[in-house]
Amino acid sequence: MVVNCLRGFEFLGDWALYYFNLTGRMGLFMLRAVIATIVPPYKWEPLVNQIHFIGAKSLFVIIFTGAFTGMVLGLQGYYSLSQFGSESALGSAIGLSLVRELGPVLTALMVTGRAGSAICAEIGIMRNTEQIDALECMAIDPFKFLIAPKLVAAIISLPILAAFFNVVGILGGYLIAVPVLGVNEGAYFQGMYQSVIWDDLYMGLVKSLAFAIIIIGICASKGFYVHLDRAGGFGAEGVSRVTTSAVVFSSVAILVGDYLITAILL
């Protein structure tokens, strides 16, 4: 009995140590990535490639999800608002929920799934096949060479992708609200115009920037430290396992971060 109790403590301690360690490692990883980003020389070609990969190639999926999110908001918003006879507020409701919340969050989740997983797997494979050791031995800083372009590209891409998401979402909502449900066109845009102010855009922008750092920090560091993974980060299976956990961890962190930023900025 006593032994079992002790084992419980042992398990708890082991778990806590592991996760403290992991969080610390990610923090230091981000710090080194930021330093590597700031210190010259700067190279443009890798940055452009990464913006293409993280940003441009995510555009289709963002437009697609943005359109459907806007359309669903149109339907659901109309249903809720019509119970109070305030269908004319539909434009404001859609605009505010997209700009402040759904735009940045859903964009970040989609980018995690598309680019975050790929980044984690790519860096994890490089680690497992000694390519990162090779970089270090060639006196090439892996943070500067691998991580910095991805970090800057994500910071540039995410706000732009979120902006696309918002615009397409607003148009999707319009498509449902005006032609299908018969909301007045003027009321849809006028309401939105009046209620969405600079502070709302600011909140959306802060979220996008924070999510960019979360995605790269978690996905890249998980891959970079695949060999330190507790479940054994060796071979293809090790990479697949850390990629899964990076996507889950990053998605959860985005939602928690979303709550914290909202609570602080409101």
Partner: peptide, 9 residues
């Protein structure tokens, strides 16, 4: 390196 560690991409 033992595995050559060439950058494969």
């Amino acid at each position: 390196f033992q595995s050559s560690a060439l950058f494969d991409s």
